[in-house]
Design a protein around this nucleic acid. Sequence first.
DNA 1: CTGTTAGCGCCTTCAA
DNA 2: TTGAAGGCGCTAACAG
Lengths: 335, 335
Amino acid sequence: MKKRPVTSQQVAELAGVSQSAVSRCFSPKASIAPKTKAKVLAAAKQLGYRPNAIARSLITRSSRTIAVVMSQLDNPFYAQMLEYASRRFQQHGYHLLLFMSSDEQETTSVMSDILQSQADGILMLAATLSSSLAKECVARGIPVVMINRTVAFEGVSQVASDNYHGGYWVGCHLVESGCERIAFLAGLADSSTSSQRRQGFLDALAEHGAACWAEAIGDYDFATAQAATRALFSRDVYPDAVFAANDHMAIAVIDTLKAELGLQVPQDVAVVGFDNIPVAAWPSYQLTTVQQPIEAMVDEATALLLGQIASGQVTGERKVLPVTPIVRASAVSGT
Amino acid sequence: MKKRPVTSQQVAELAGVSQSAVSRCFSPKASIAPKTKAKVLAAAKQLGYRPNAIARSLITRSSRTIAVVMSQLDNPFYAQMLEYASRRFQQHGYHLLLFMSSDEQETTSVMSDILQSQADGILMLAATLSSSLAKECVARGIPVVMINRTVAFEGVSQVASDNYHGGYWVGCHLVESGCERIAFLAGLADSSTSSQRRQGFLDALAEHGAACWAEAIGDYDFATAQAATRALFSRDVYPDAVFAANDHMAIAVIDTLKAELGLQVPQDVAVVGFDNIPVAAWPSYQLTTVQQPIEAMVDEATALLLGQIASGQVTGERKVLPVTPIVRASAVSGT
DNA sequence: CTGTTAGCGCCTTCAA
DNA sequence: TTGAAGGCGCTAACAG
């Protein structure tokens, strides 16, 4: 059966001091005589005492907890982000409460749980928030940082990589490589990442006097991207280059081209992705892509959250971090 | 600045009832007159009241939180598990507190945080616990369930797939396919998963009058597995089959064989993995493997944790779930 | 530096 | 069914 945990009161009795003396021994900044501290720690060890973080939170009004809302963990890009974020916050004495939410409706119910959980801050990884919910967080003074997603509301902070210039680079690279029938495979229709990458890409083509030859939607999903690829290549004249809005889909494109359509990459079709997930570097793919600075993005988000928590001010800041083109075999210059 | 949240006291005043009446409106099983409840809910909505879960936990002594300890999130197999587990617990009104821990030493410090967090249960995904720590959890009545890892201590529950028979099947399959120089690529040396798979595999070979031709260690890591592959194939006579202890490494083997060594799979070398991660099904790999029942494993772990939390009894149970061979092109019968 | 005294926001007996 | 009262385990003034 569940035993009642040891309390600071019991430690105090054993050590022959007051309960608050025990409390002070476990608060970094409290002043306590070394001698009493030793007595208390001895008693605590003997009883197996651990401070109750719940009780502490109640009075300090700080749970030292960050709620993380994610939409997909099957994309290694976001899995990496989560792992790094967890370690980062752990370093600062914060813990992550994980919530999965696929759509905005689910997010609403999840946010209710988050608000009750008294999380000190909210980190959204590729998940969106309705503006009414965002408003409530701001009203309550809970900082929210969104990574790679945009919300039309003042007060929530946003961290993103420079999707526009990433897309722009891809456009330039493909045109300069001599490609003439360039297709774009979009991610989720309503995601800012996909539309910004697309816009930069289209602008680059336009500046070179070129245009996008075909477009399709892959929803950032493997199977959907495969279907889209089949559609794009179903006619006699097909694209000689595909820019997929992320690596996950680019891999799907390459596999479909090679295995189903008997086409070579990059000889027949050049393929470019976005993210630079580990798979992109594998010998079988050698995917040319645009690297997002995962760690820098998380560092920025961490700083934003912790800063706002410390100051008690929620400020809707926007950070855009530079991306890095990675040229591999799937789309080389001069193909 | 951070506003003080609305309390049940304030709601009570606005509704003209006592604070305990408000409390009862937010407890499912409490009895309350419909009329009062309506008044209270109206007042609560007007003020934007949300019950404070921290305060509730303090008195109910239940945080409705499960601590999850993971070692690697870059292996999609465990990312999938985490996602599914999160949704599963969410359904039951529990939330996950995420902790990353690479080695047993780090686990020790992480466990200290977990114990303080008052988590109602602990789920370990491919992470190990020292027996002293396990002992402490049991002593405190906190149920622990480990997935795919073993600990030499009574009291913690364990869920695993049938690694032995999975390995056994692989051994049979490769011998029956006519392979004669079969190599094994181990995962982490001290992991039960790797050693059980190996044992089943060796037993199968022995029963067929065969033996393992070579062994190497890949630590469940991509780069290490690549290096191991180079070593295995550095001599004139090299293996005609490789059984990698998981898919992640099997993919590394295939890539290294194809890209660096100019060998064909399965014509020159048959390759088999373990897990059946999504990548295994991709056209470029078509990896023959042994599928672990992810959802069944998590369901089992969930049931064990919630059952023990409900009963207040921690019982060290062991569940072994059946695996499913998946034959794809990387190692077919009669090669 | 130490003990005493109030609560943090809520649940839960106990009477009414 | 409802209100009043007493904590849950701890931190944070305040005196001493």
